[in-house]
Design a protein around this nucleic acid. Structure first.
Length: 879
DNA sequence: CGATCCCGCCACATT
DNA sequence: AATGTGGCGGGATCG
């Protein structure tokens, strides 16, 4: 067969000369009626066959490698339309002939010669970038395949990507219509818009936040874009989907994936997208199914797409160095701004300029091009799409409906983000030493990584402002953002640092660290920097080496100010912390002893039980309320935080104090809890530090918002003592999702001590993190109970009891996050919640996870165990 | 050894 | 049923 093909290829000679011409010829001419699916095997070589040609062909067949190889190199750079590639071939042939057969084998064409990118170049070379409008160029897959000497399968890879950009459209079986790049800018524009809708929130949020002070991320988008639902843009992107039976269809995947991939670039400020992040984001599957295999597959596809895009000159490969090392990434080098019509588009980068010559604002080509099948449906379906909340999406109507996708996407985004974060975390955890754990911390080298990855990545992560923390790279750090700060500031009056914030979010790694209150002192540290009345103790703690800390922490807890600790310079602390953090991730820096053991078993048990109950509650009735609370509650959380801070600084709230004392009593409390992603739906990881240095945490706060990850941050330690904390964050502003189905992310804190092993993590429903979350000090520690969640009374008690019993200090506050799961099926808010809740509640460790979890990953058990394991390790590790 | 990604099996879709 | 499409992932290559 190959030979046969090759022979065909030979004919290409003529072609080579003028790719363009050929295309034209082929295309329009009546001769080949384009549409017919006819197999053209013949076609390809209409005339040119000369005997010689045959020989050449044969030769080439024999040693295609050689030919290709050399050719390839030359071609390589030229790319684009030039026919050059062909020419060389011809030359090559001659060459080949000589050595030919013998050699052919020995020189197998290196893989590169066969690369999709090269193939794509050849493919593109055959057609004019800007064909005359009048003629239509039709492309016969068979023909092309034969000419290019590849299997048809490969052509599909190329065409699918090109189709996603509307460079070609499918006319009929085996027939594609070549449009060229006339509409490329339009398409890109559409994608950009769509991308903003889909991913923009995240991106913009972060990005803007950094750059602009105000980041309401939701708002902007909305302003420009009426409703996510309405946007037509998507339509085109999704049309494909529609054609197939909706979601289920697998077909569209490559095309859609391609579009999404492009969207990421268009939405990304940096225009650089790392493969892994893209893969994670593009894995729409709900949940965290982060299967490694799945990820790998996704990456493979992305390479395919990237190769084509590279050939189109839209992106180029680059490397971003992140924490762990350099990661493969791609940079958008295509047009950034599009002459578009509406002002909607926001142009993101100044430099950009529309395609060089192309700007035809014609109507969207794609539609036109589209063969018939697809389109109609799409409109209908798409219009309605709404974000997650989707109350209405009638799921029922058709499982497939595209809109679902859209909505789901929204949700899935969050999820994906979470997943991404989670992975990072995981990675980090793996390499505790190396990794970023400290991301928060200003570790010189490492710190970067923390930040960096994200920024480059699709969404720039916001970095914490904290001065001390300031990232070395400055990458992320640039913007301290007010958002959080502001909030904090308002409350605290200290803008810059989030003194209050108890959480740390690692941009790069999607970890959330929670510091339990203990140490408020620590917070203080941050505060101190800010100027608050910092407590030194915090610093001291931070400063204190982990190992020491562990015990100390407990002590500290007991006595807020740890004498020795305080003294250390913040810098040190940071470093320490950093180092610690990493450890913490992997290994809790402070090894807490098995929490269970320490904690009163009874308590722990009870608490655990309660939790479960709690879930249940949430699942059913409570959930909604909880959500509401949260939504309403942000304040509370803030308050809590505030309290937290307050306490931190100096005086622990009474309750806490006593708790802290208790903690003190208890020797070991794990300062941090690492929650594995698996547990949750979402894949977030949380770290809770009981005693942690606040500073880190503070950072987190900033980051969080930036991340916009649907995570909820758990209030600080102070809260820790309290059973549940709700994260205030609400999607509200941005979220297209009105319902707030996700809106509220509830987080619960309870003393971990008993639970620690279990590390209860909950993912909140989509709760998008609102920037607002910023810690506001307001609430009393005691009150924390309000927990948005409905805790079953019992639970609450238990918690309370626990607190008392267990050292609050330890306080491993657990947070629950509700994640909305992007369930495949559209969920109505109502429906969603219950489900979510259920799912949410698994604690990896303690709770055995039920099947549900599993679906997300089979690992859960593993996770749980791992968590525990980590904990244990930590305990040991600490010295 | 990780990054790339070619290759082609095979399921599903379309004729 | 034949043929078109294209998801998918093993495993070969590259760097």
């Amino acid at each position: 067969e190959n030979i046969f093909d090759r022979s065909r290829m030979a004919p290409k000679t003529p072609i080579k000369n003028e790719p363009v011409d050929l295309s034209k010829q082929k295309g329009c001419t009546p001769e080949r009626n384009p549409i017919t699916p006819v197999k053209l095997v013949d076609r390809p070589q209409p005339d040119p066959w000369t005997p010689t040609a045959n020989l050449k062909m044969l030769v080439s067949a024999a040693s295609p490698d050689m030919r290709d190889r050399e050719k390839k190199k030359e071609l390589f750079r030229p790319i684009e339309n030039s026919e050059q590639s062909d020419i060389p071939d011809s030359l090559q042939y001659d060459m080949v002939d000589d050595s030919t057969v013998d050699e052919f084998e020995k020189q197998r064409p290196s893989r590169k010669q066969k690369s999709l990118g090269l193939l794509c170049q050849k493919f593109l070379a055959r057609y004019p970038s800007y064909p005359l409008s009048t003629e239509k160029t039709t492309i016969s897959l068979d023909e092309v395949a034969s000419v290019l000497g590849v299997e048809r399968r490969r052509i599909y890879d190329i065409v699918n990507v090109l189709e996603s950009l509307h460079l070609v459209s499918r006319v009929a079986k085996n027939q594609y219509c070549w449009h060229g790049r006339h509409d490329l800018s339009q398409t890109l524009k559409s994608l950009q818009e769509a991308g903003e809708l889909q991913y923009g929130e995240l991106m913009t949020f972060f990005q803007h936040k950094e750059q602009d002070l105000e980041y309401k991320f939701g708002e902007r988008k909305k302003e420009t874009i009426p409703d996510s639902q309405d946007r037509p843009l998507l339509d085109f992107s999704e049309q494909d989907c529609t054609s197939a039976s909706a979601n289920s269809r697998k077909d569209k995947s490559l095309r859609i994936m391609s579009q999404k991939f492009v969207m990421l670039f268009l939405v990304s400020k940096t225009k650089i997208v790392t493969l892994d992040i893209a893969a994670k984001i593009l894995i729409e599957e709900t949940q965290d199914t982060v299967d490694h295999s799945k990820f790998k597959t996704k990456v493979r596809r992305l390479y395919d797409i990237a190769n084509v895009l590279t050939s189109l000159g839209l992106i180029k490969k680059v490397h971003v160095t992140e924490e762990r090392g350099r990661k493969p990434a791609f940079k958008w080098i295509g047009p950034v701004e599009f002459p578009g019509k509406s002002g909607e588009l926001r142009e993101r980068s100044p430099t950009s300029d529309p395609l060089p010559g192309t700007q035809r604002g014609d109507c969207a080509p794609y539609q036109i091009c589209a063969t018939g099948k697809q389109r109609f449906t799409r409109h209908a379906s798409f219009n309605g799409a709404q974000p997650c909340e989707g109350t209405r999406r009638k799921v029922s109507s058709e499982p497939n409906s595209p809109r679902q996708e859209r909505q789901d996407e929204y949700c899935s985004k969050m999820i994906n983000l979470a997943a991404v974060c989670r992975q990072k975390i995981e990675e980090d955890t793996r390499n505790p030493s190396i990794t970023s754990p400290p991301s928060l911390l200003p570790v010189p080298g490492d710190s970067d990584f923390c930040v960096n990855p994200l920024p480059q990545a699709v969404f720039p992560v916001v970095q914490t402002d904290v001065p001390s923390l300031s990232l070395p790279n400055g990458i992320s750090s640039q913007a301290p953002h007010p958002s959080m700060l502001a909030a904090s500031k308002t409350e605290n009056g200290k803008p810059s640092l989030l003194p209050n914030q108890p959480f740390l979010c690692f941009p790069s790694s999607p970890l959330l660290m929670l510091c339990s209150g203990l140490h408020e002192n620590n917070l203080r540290e941050t505060l101190s920097t800010t100027g608050d009345g910092g407590n030194r103790s915090a610093e001291a703690q931070a400063a204190v080496p982990p190992a020491v800390c562990q015990k100390r922490s407990s002590h500290k807890c007991a006595s807020p100010s740890a004498p020795a600790d305080d003294e250390e310079p913040a810098a040190k602390k940071q470093t320490m912390e950093q180092s610690d953090l990493p450890l913490s991730l992997v290994v809790p820096k402070k090894p807490f002893e098995s929490p269970k053991a320490e904690c009163n078993p009874g308590n722990g048990c009870t608490s655990a039980v309660h939790l479960e109950d709690y879930h249940l509650d949430l699942a059913s009735p409570a959930a909604p309320e909880a959500a509401n609370k949260e939504s309403t509650k942000p304040l509370d959380s803030q308050e809590q935080e505030k309290q937290f801070q307050k306490k931190d600084p100096d005086e622990p709230s009474p309750g806490k104090e006593h708790i802290s004392k208790e903690n003190a009593n208890q020797p070991f409390l794990p300062q941090y809890l690492y929650v594995q992603p698996t547990a949750g739906l979402s894949s977030f990881n949380f770290l809770f530090s009981a005693n942690q240095a606040p500073g880190a945490i503070s950072l987190a706060a900033n980051q969080l918002p930036s991340l916009s990850v649907p995570c909820v941050v758990v209030p600080s330690a102070a809260l820790a003592s309290f059973p549940v904390v709700c994260s205030p964050t609400i999607t509200s502003p941005l979220s297209p999702v009105p319902d707030g189905s996700f809106s509220a992310a509830t987080s619960m804190n309870f003393s971990m001590s008993s639970l620690a092993s279990t590390t209860p993590v909950f993912i909140g429903t989509t709760a998008v993190v609102t920037p607002k979350v910023s810690p506001t000090p307001s609430v009393d520690p005691q009150q924390p109970a309000h927990p948005s969640l409905h805790l079953s009374p019992v639970l609450a008690r238990s918690c309370a009891a626990v607190k008392l019993d267990s050292p609050v200090c330890m306080g491993h506050p657990v947070t629950l996050l509700k994640l909305q799961q992007p369930s495949s099926t559209p969920l109505t808010p109502k429906s969603i919640r219950p489900a979510c809740h259920e799912a949410f509640f698994k604690t990896p460790g303690s709770l055995g996870d039920p099947v549900a979890w599993k679906k997300s990953e089979g690992n859960q058990t593993r996770n749980a165990s791992s968590v525990q394991r980590r904990l244990e390790i930590s305990s040991t590790s600490p010295d």
